[in-house]
């Protein structure tokens, strides 16, 4: 796909990113990154450390401003909207380093997402939270303060809070690290179910065996540029070739 074709983004995309650029002083972190994700599609975002993956998620979520380019949610330009507005338009994210509301219980953490993100109230909000906690296996610790959770449960809570928002676009940032095989299988099942509900997912992940079970397309970022894009098999093969050329793995 040529850049111009990519710019003529599919009208139906839940999320499209057009020529996003970002630099810190003279250091370019992202340069002309474009891609789109359709409802019910999972796009895997891979690349070496420092490629700009988390910065890109921050820009999409509204935690950071980009220097150039556009972010569109269902065709609406949200480049200048604050993070909370984007969330209420159906965008949810998880943080790579978990950011729980430490003073709130696990249940209340997800309740914030259900009430503000999904706009639910009363019983509907409670049932939504319960569903998210069941999916992430956190119901047993629902009354515990989030600050008391160990790292793995904090990562689960990131996902629970995002799921409680009933997002149309979900950004996942390295949620599979440190899981056992059965836990990874359970997580893959959860992400699949969310995707099958019509949510567009962008998943940044180093654990490729988890990612490739769900992602139908991969985008490989390197030094802030799209190095490769396409079906997972092709991209990974392509990367293999490049690794052979450059004498190092880009992943």
């Amino acid at each position: 796909m040529s850049p111009s074709e990519r710019l003529a983004a599919r009208e139906t995309d839940a999320l499209s990113i057009r020529s996003v650029g970002m630099s810190f002083g003279s250091l370019s972190v992202l340069d002309g990154v474009s891609f789109g994700v359709a409802p019910g599609e999972t796009l895997g975002l891979v690349g070496p450390n420092g490629a700009g993956k988390t910065t890109l998620l921050d820009i999409v979520a509204g935690a950071r401003r980009c220097d150039g380019g556009q972010v569109l949610l269902s065709g609406r330009d949200v480049t200048r909207l604050a993070a909370d507005r984007r969330c209420r338009l159906g965008l949810a994210r998880t943080f790579q380093v978990p950011r729980p509301f430490g003073d709130l219980t696990v249940f209340e953490n997800a309740l914030v997402g259900a009430v503000r993100g999904a706009g639910l109230r009363g019983r509907a909000a409670y049932d939504d939270v319960r569903g998210a906690l069941v999916l992430t296996d956190l119901l047993a610790v629902a009354n515990a303060p989030a600050s008391s959770l160990r790292l793995l449960d904090r990562k689960r809570l990131e996902l629970a809070r995002a799921l409680a928002m009933r997002p149309r676009v979900l950004l996942l940032d390295e949620i599979a690290g440190g899981l056992t095989d059965p836990e990874t299988a359970a997580l893959v099942g959860t992400v699949r179910r969310v995707r099958d509900g019509g949510t567009a997912i962008v998943w940044v992940e180093h654990v490729l065996r988890a990612l490739t079970q769900v992602a139908t397309r991969l985008v490989c970022l390197s030094a802030g540029r799209v190095l490769a894009e396409g079906a997972p098999g092709e991209v990974l093969a392509d990367l293999g070739v490049r690794a052979a050329y450059f004498g190092r793995s880009v992943l």
């Binding site: 979520a61 509204g62 935690a63 604050a82 993070a83 909370d84 969330c87 209420r88 949810a92 994210r93 943080f95 950011r99 729980p100 509301f101 430490g102 003073d103 709130l104 209340e108 309740l111 914030v112 997402g113 009430v115 503000r116 993100g117 109230r121 809070r161 928002m165």
Partner: peptide
């Protein structure tokens, strides 16, 4: 109220609160 939930979330982590839809 819901305002109280928002306020406690903002107190704990304003960045995460904004990403969860709270008007910080």
């Amino acid at each position: 109220s819901r305002f109280g939930l928002d306020a406690r979330a903002v107190h704990s982590d304003p960045v995460a609160a904004a990403s969860a839809g709270v008007a910080v």
